[in-house]
């Protein structure tokens, strides 16, 4: 069982560069073919400062900032018990290749379900760019099967 003492835990902020190659790789894997996601020249022609990060890219930053295995270790659990329950994105602005994003993540709740055979660990993450603009937020529900 995951202890409730972890509610309110704030992970140290992590600053991550948004890499062009990574954005291309993600877009290609998802089959996104528009030039603004894959071709820096097309992005420039569209007036963008760099490749546009796809909508689910904040999840990539979230996981780069905190590897799942480290989250699971903190909670005293194992990866094999973990399922992804929810990933909710709120967007305030774009993320481009070349940005530097500060990722701030906090555990906001731990909920027991089905007499403790399932536990939901809820986190809230903020993504702040180099201009001090909050560009996105995510709410994540990590489900542990006991």
């Amino acid at each position: 069982m995951i202890e409730k003492k972890h509610i309110g835990h704030e992970f140290s902020p992590v600053i991550l560069p948004v890499e062009e190659g990574r954005l291309k790789f993600l877009a290609k894997t998802l089959g996104m073919t528009q030039g603004i996601y894959t071709d820096p020249d097309a992005a420039a022609a569209a007036g963008l400062p760099g490749l546009l990060a796809p909508p689910t890219y904040p999840f990539v930053l979230e996981i780069d900032a905190l590897e799942l295995v480290d989250l699971v270790n903190l909670l005293g659990e194992t990866l094999g018990k973990l399922l992804h329950g929810e990933e909710n994105f709120t967007y305030h602005g774009p993320i481009y290749a070349g940005d530097e994003i500060t990722v701030r993540k906090k555990i906001t709740d731990i909920i027991d379900k089905k007499e403790g055979t399932l536990q939901f660990v809820i986190s809230h993450t903020e993504f702040i760019n180099q201009h001090d603009e909050k560009v996105a937020e995510t709410l994540t529900n990590y489900v542990f099967r006991h």
């Binding site: 993600l26 894997t29 998802l30 089959g31 996104m32 528009q34 546009l52 796809p54 909508p55 689910t56 999840f59 929810e86 990933e87 909710n88 994105f89 709120t90 967007y91 774009p94």
Partner: peptide, 21 residues
């Protein structure tokens, strides 16, 4: 979830998306 988001960016510019749950 990435495919769902791609369905949206195939339909509207990404700047139009306010949230996806």
């Amino acid at each position: 979830a990435g495919y769902l988001a791609r369905m949206l960016t195939d339909w509207v510019p990404q700047s139009a998306i306010r949230s996806i749950n």
